[in-house]
Design a protein around this nucleic acid. Structure first.
Lengths: 190, 190
DNA sequence: CCAGATGTAGACAGAGTTGTCTACAATACG
DNA sequence: CGTATTGTAGACAACTCTGTCTACATCTGG
């Protein structure tokens, strides 16, 4: 009995379907709020298949964060580029993100808040993510001895705007960020 | 049979003991990560007593946030005062908070990230909290037509610093915030 | 050509979750 | 004085969660 047109067209391999499903559910509803069964059903795989790829939910959580990191960083760099690539690209880029229907804040901030000490690797991954985000922001700033430090300041302000946007205050958050970015150091370096 | 010296010295009434326990556990470990049974055991009450005060876990969550709000706002205002009450009081105040052994970020940011749409009232409470925090910050700024807007900018930067501190980068977060606060608008108003 | 990787369906164990229920004791107030 | 409130101990129902297991099918590489 042929079970279903499953193997004939495995267009997307199981592991990737699982990751896609995990991304939508973990980011959209929270990690603890999402049971493995739900991921499995959404991905359209079975339990055995799932557990062969990810021995435990924690493994999936870490893989999800890695996947989210790649995906978000690529989107961020590309969108900044599209808006001209300077500091002035930051506000329109974030505006796009905040306006997205599925926006629910920063996956890494949410995950650290949710899992904190329960899964310490999460904090590591989050830290690396913020470092990479800060590096991407540094590229927008004019060269100067202080560039790294200024980039960190902008990154902190951006993350503040992200959580305020998550609270439903996207416009106010962007106006606040705008005020911060108008400071001379952000505009003309050193 | 006298059950135990329970009623003879109810020093702290049950409702408050429950709230105290919920605060320690929800803030320290996360809301979803904390079962009702754990709160009950920590508070030293029984299930019936608990459910007479809080008909459901959601009621407790909301009461916890209300309690946290009062407690944190009082601490914030008082500590700012202790450091002189100007914009310059902000960094040492936050430094104290970040260095506290039980610091785990902002309870409201964490709760929104964790519960998001599952309990929409949480977002309301969080929004009110941030408004009150912003108002407290406005009091530190010199009077000017732009004071409200500047206070919002500072609040956004502060929340960014809070999440970065939660990632284990408290020092870098404070240095970043310092750079932002050095901007002229934060110092001399309009 | 066959062995190993990858896929399928679905039952099940063991733990943890929220919330209810019975039955009884002490206190506080009108 | 006696009734409403607040307290106690602990069993229990109904559910969800993670992870394991049996038993079988198909594709792919050496």
């Amino acid at each position: 009995m042929r079970t279903a047109g499953t193997h004939s067209e495995p267009q997307v391999p199981a592991r990737e379907r699982i990751l896609l499903a995990a991304h939508a559910l973990f980011y959209g509803n929270g990690i603890r709020a999402t049971g493995i069964d739900r991921v499995i059903a959404t991905a359209g795989v079975t339990k055995v298949t799932f557990y062969r790829h990810f021995p435990s939910k924690n493994d999936l959580v870490l893989a999800f964060l890695e996947y989210r990191h790649e995906r978000w960083m690529a989107w961020f760099a590309q969108t900044l580029e599209r808006y001209g690539g300077g500091v002035n690209a930051l506000l329109p880029t974030l505006n796009e993100w905040f306006a997205a229907a599925d926006f629910r804040g920063c996956a890494f901030i949410n995950s650290v808040g949710e899992l904190g000490d329960a899964l310490p690797e999460v904090r590591e991954v989050a830290r690396r993510h913020k470092q990479d985000m800060t590096d991407a922001i540094a590229k927008l700033l004019p060269p100067s001895a202080m560039r790294e430090r200024y980039a960190r300041a902008v990154a902190v302000a951006v993350d503040g705007a992200v959580v305020h946007a998550q609270f439903g205050e996207a416009d106010a958050a962007l106006r606040a960020l705008e005020i911060i970015l108008e400071a001379s150091w952000a505009q003309k370096g050193d």
